[in-house]
Write a protein that binds this DNA or RNA. Structure first.
Length: 905
DNA sequence: GAGGTGTTCCTTTTT
DNA sequence: GGAACACCTC
């Protein structure tokens, strides 16, 4: 591993800027050398970090690799600015993406400078700072200062109304899809009149633009803003009102941005407006722009929601003369883990290039990155569960272990397993507290109390609990409200005072509106928690759940109590609601020792002693959809995700892949991820999948291969082990495309080709186990033979990338029976056909094509033949209909399967 | 208006 | 397989 010594080299050809020079001068001018000497917080920094902290003047880009002390640099930098009296706390704008990051920064700066953090009003997330600015200038975009912030759910309901108002089929044009589109536009900073023509046409027969504009109008009339607006509006304000912008220019002396690689266009525009100026202060000198962005292009994993890596790649152009500082000295992981991660990420082309290194050498007790194989996802969960217990027995804390999955459906298997085992776990980033139904209902009540004009909140709870105020009544309210230009609540009150409704709904409306009026009158002089409780009681909401017999009702009641409790720290109901709108997460209890389960995405920024990375299979990871929709850049983002995953580990990274996984309810055979191929041999140990042979399934814990985790088993296996060979063999089988996820075929083909392989009885997997295991060895042997004939399946790091990409471009899977065209068909043709069907063609065509190819063939099996099936083992043919066969399996019972999955026994 | 049944979808997710 | 949603019936 090389150790770059020029830690502040520019990105590309830009003149080197003397790092520290200006800073030193500034320091001398303002704080004097004494400030430097006293600054013992600098002593703990390495030279690169120190440069990042001390280069206070002018634009700075800090490329901070995983585990190189990014947060430390950011916080120390702020502390340094404060301690050196370069700026007051209120003159520093520091933005993060998540509340968690903001909180952490606040805490850590507090450790340096004490109470001064309280005075850092401009440290927060993009959105919270956006709200703050917007509340100050709301009238400039036609809002009132007390505008409400809509969450996604409100947003979708609103859009649905608009779509229906246009007489569009809201099934054909779902509000959710439209919400995503609008989100995407806002991420790009585009107003309705600015969206590309193509986008505008794409939705609702060309009504996209019109709907977007109508939506914005609706928001304005509701005095509401969605998340995107929290940045869009400030941008519009800055552009239209230079005086406002100039005011912020005067205010902020330093701007710091965390996770710069994740910024989207809107955030970028917002930042640039704030940061790009010749600062004209009273003394009329142009000072340089002191913007400091910290990020890691290798950890950019949010492209799919609008993040533009390009922002970080382009930093020097945007801010000429920028100092670029690379942090490459890693303090987190062992050399094996770093070696594996670095080698993997080196397969990406679009990167600024960093090489992580560690000062710690390779110690004998450092474990290599492990690659493990399992038969199916159940075994994977079981084996990982047992390994966790082993580690626990050796004294490791569960809190130090994490399972990082690509997709959340993978979590379930682990949860099931851990529940059975009695192993503590916590799921991070599951359904968020404030997104729960009962919480949202309760919040809607509070919103209506605080803000009677909040129509969306009103609609949400007008008939919850049931009050006999159904569609008819609500429509009447709408009409009345619209006709008179008043909010729903007011309309309700008016209508309740007339004879327009029958007595029952009229009475209900009257009660409801009077209740809200009464609660509102209590706002000023009642403790907010008491009031909240009162509202839930008196509205009948609590009672509704008390009377609910369903299993989740008690939990919901608990959540409501928790909600009231979480309001304690706030001083008013409105204050609490503002917080909730921006902070959707709730703290988890950290006292419990538990394994963390989370997605790779939510693992960014975290670290664990031991990290389990299951599901490294083609199609799942890299995810098929990323490949289909993102092409090469999609693949690269997946690879960055893999990089993020591995670099979460301090001591141990354990990768897993399985041969069979159930996807959308169907069992599918899978092949190891190409990313496994891209790992360097030196730092990786391929574990033997001895569960295939051990007494697995004979019940009892450790039933399969207790030796597996013995010290001996950790010894010198490598790429020559049976495990690796099997992996390669399985991969080689890809040349004859017989796996669903490995192919580029769309969903439709998969569903049809594999439809009959689904397991109908839930008992099958268990009863089938022994068969599976015997079959496994068999199957691998077959694969090896095929591999011998079919050329090398090896893809070594240097060339593996290109090879794999090409190979993934295959045609529709065709069952391998009767010498079908599947394997012989030229890839290009297959791909073209697929791509056309997938991208443009009507779905019907796609279905027909495939259905035809599957259905017209005659079976080569006849009743009575003995057959072998990968999942169900051996059996005999009971009936034949075209290529669909009914098989009496020896262990799995009778199944209907596609011929393509059968072989001669 | 409520409750039961059919249909469709299925990556990642913050604010 | 299963959740979420839409539609349909009583």
């Amino acid at each position: 591993m090389t150790r770059p010594d020029d830690h502040s080299r520019p990105l590309a050809g830009a003149p080197e800027r003397p790092s520290g020079g200006i800073a030193a001068r500034a320091l001398a001018a303002r704080g004097g050398p004494a400030a430097m000497r006293e600054a013992n917080y600098l002593a703990n920094l390495n030279p690169e970090q120190r440069a990042a902290v001390e280069t206070t003047e002018g634009p700075v880009l800090v490329l901070a690799g995983a585990g190189t002390g990014k947060t430390r640099v950011l916080t120390t930098r702020i502390a340094h600015i404060l301690a050196s009296r370069l700026a007051y706390p209120s003159q520093i704008l520091a933005v993060t993406f998540t509340n968690k990051a903001a909180r952490e920064m606040k805490t850590r700066i507090g450790l340096f400078v004490g109470a001064e953090v309280e005075g850092m009003p401009w440290l927060g997330t993009f959105h919270s700072i956006g709200v703050k600015m917007l509340r100050r200038h709301a009238e400039l975009v036609g809002l009132k200062t007390n505008f409400t912030i809509l969450d996604t759910d409100d947003q979708i309901r609103l859009m649905k109304q608009l779509i229906q108002a246009e007489n569009l089929d809201d099934k054909r044009w779902p509000a959710r899809t439209f919400a995503n589109m609008v989100d995407g536009w806002k991420n790009k900073g585009l107003k309705p009149e600015e969206i590309p023509e193509g986008d505008a046409r794409a939705f609702a027969n060309g009504k996209g633009r019109q709907l977007y504009a109508a939506y914005q109008e609706r928001l304005k009339s509701l005095n509401a803003a969605d998340f995107g607006d929290l940045l869009m509006h400030p941008i519009a304000i800055f552009r239209a009102h230079p005086d406002v912008l100039a005011d912020y220019h005067r205010r902020f002396r330093y701007i710091l941005v965390d996770e710069y690689q994740d910024t989207n266009v809107a955030q970028y525009l917002w930042l640039r407006l704030l940061a790009q100026r010749s600062r004209r202060t009273g003394d009329d000198t142009d000072e340089p722009i002191n913007v400091c962005c910290v990020g890691d292009d290798d950890q950019s994993i949010y492209g799919w929601r609008g993040a533009e890596v390009d922002n970080i790649l382009r930093f020097e152009k945007d801010f000429p003369g920028a100092a670029v500082i690379r942090l490459e000295r890693n303090y987190r992981s062992t050399a094996h883990i770093l070696g594996a991660a670095s080698h993997l990420i080196a397969h990406n082309e679009d990167r600024l290039g960093k090489t992580l290194f560690t000062d710690a050498g390779i110690e004998p007790d450092h474990e290599k990155v492990e690659v493990n194989a399992a038969w199916d996802s159940e075994e994977e969960a079981r084996a990982i569960g047992e390994e966790i217990e082993q580690l626990q027995r050796r004294g490791h804390k569960l809190n130090d272990m994490a399972i990082l999955v690509r997709a959340s459906f993978q979590m379930r298997e682990f949860e099931d397993r851990f529940v059975t085992m009695g192993l503590n776990y916590r799921v991070i980033g599951g359904p968020r507290f404030y997104e729960r139904l009962e919480i949202r209902d309760a919040l809607a009540y509070f919103r209506c109390t605080v803000q009677p004009a909040d129509d969306l909140a009103f609609e949400r709870i007008v008939n919850t609990p049931k009050r006999g105020l159904g569609d008819t009544t609500v429509r009447l309210l709408h009409d009345h409200a619209r006709a008179k230009g008043i909010p729903l609540m007011a309309a309700a009150a008016e209508i309740a005072a007339t004879e327009e409704l029958k007595s029952k709904p009229r009475r209900a409306l009257d009660d409801l509106t009077k209740n809200f009026a009464r609660w509102a009158s209590l706002l000023a002089n009642t403790k907010h928690t008491d009031l909240a409780e009162m509202i839930l009681e008196e509205s009948g909401y609590t009672e509704m759940w008390q009377n609910d017999r369903s299993a989740e009702a008690p939990g919901r009641l608990d959540n409501l109590k928790e909600l009231i409790r979480s309001m304690e720290p706030y001083d008013s109901l409105p204050g609490f609601l503002e917080h909730v709108a921006l902070v959707m997460d709730a703290e988890q209890n950290a006292d419990l020792d538990a394994v963390s389960i989370m997605t790779l995405h939510s693992a960014k920024g975290l670290e664990f002693e031991t990290v389990f990375l299951p599901g490294w299979e083609e199609g799942l990871f890299p995810h098929q959809r990323s490949l289909d929709e993102g092409g090469r850049s999609g693949l690269e983002e997946e690879r960055r995700l893999a990089y993020v995953g591995i670099t979460r580990a301090k001591q141990r990274a354990k990768l897993w892949f399985v041969s069979n996984r159930r996807i959308h309810g169907l069992w599918q055979s899978t092949i190891p991820s190409r990313f496994l191929d891209e790992l360097p041999e030196d730092h990786v140990e391929v574990k033997e999948a001895n569960s295939s042979y051990g007494g697995y399934g004979r019940g009892g814990m450790g039933g399969y291969g207790a030796s597996r985790w013995d010290a001996d088993a950790f010894s010198t296996t490598s790429y020559q082990t049976p495990g690796w060979k099997r992996a390669q063999a399985a991969r080689a089988a890809e040349t004859r495309p017989d796996t669903a996820w490995g192919s580029r075929s769309g969903h439709k083909e998969r569903a049809i080709s594999y439809g009959d392989q689904g397991v109908s009885g839930s008992d099958v997997r268990r009863s089938n186990r022994e068969t599976d295991l015997a079959a496994k060895a068999d199957r691998y042997a077959r694969m090896s033979e095929e591999r011998a004939q079919g050329g090398s399946g090896t893809a070594m790091p240097s060339n593996g990338f290109a090879g794999r990409l090409e190979r993934s471009g295959r045609g529709v899977y065709e069952p391998a029976s009767g010498g079908g065209r599947g394997s012989n068909r030229p890839p290009s043709r297959g791909l073209g056909l697929n791509a056309a069907a997938r991208d443009g063609g009507p779905r019907e065509i796609e279905g027909t094509l495939v259905a035809k190819s599957v259905a017209t063939e005659e079976s080569r099996f006849k009743v009575g033949d003995r057959v072998f099936h990968l999942k169900f083992g051996n059996g005999s043919v009971a009936a034949v209909e075209g290529n669909k066969l009914t098989i009496d399996f020896d262990r799995a019972g009778q199944k209907r399967v596609l011929e393509g999955f059968l072989q001669d026994a």
